[in-house]
């Protein structure tokens, strides 16, 4: 984008020149419907898997497996149905920030609940 002053009315992209303002793909890019169908089928399969897996006992890993499948499904929806894969970097930053602060909330909350039973040690 040139730094020249516009000589007549308005330039076509009169915004700041920061790279984040450029989308990753030009607006004309349309994802094929076959991708959506494929994602849908994978999502259904993962749903079946998560129910099946719930029938087995992995002990403490039950939650890990269940969350792992759910996160995979959610990632597919975000990347493909919500087009995040083809969106500008700023969209990724927004998604990541919301997740980061949610994780901070849970993590620091658990820090309290997990350490409550720890014994107190008197000084000296």
């Amino acid at each position: 984008m040139s730094e020249q002053l516009p000589s007549e009315s308005q330039p076509t992209h009169p915004r700041g020149h920061a790279p984040e303002n450029q989308p990753a793909h030009p607006r004309g890019h349309v994802v094929s419907w076959k991708v959506y169908l494929a994602v849908f089928l994978v999502l259904c399969a993962l749903t079946v898997i998560t129910v099946q897996v719930a029938g087995h006992d992995f002990g403490p890993f039950n939650l890990v497996v269940a969350l792992g499948v759910a996160i995979t499904k959610a990632t597919l929806v975000v990347l493909y149905f919500m087009h995040a894969r083809y969106s500008e970097k700023l969209t990724h930053v927004v998604i990541a920030s919301s997740l980061a602060f949610f994780v901070i909330l849970v993590f620091l909350l658990l820090a309290d609940y997990l350490s409550r039973p720890w014994p107190l040690v008197a000084a000296g």
Binding site: I104, L108, A111, D112, Y113, L114, S115, R116, W118, L120
Partner: peptide, 22 residues
């Protein structure tokens, strides 16, 4: 600023070790 909230709860009964972190 999002990482410090529990300094409002130091005497509430929350875990002391977590309080130290906050």
């Amino acid at each position: 600023g999002f990482l410090v909230w529990a300094h409002h709860l130091f005497v509430s009964g929350m875990a002391v070790y977590a309080a130290m972190v906050f």
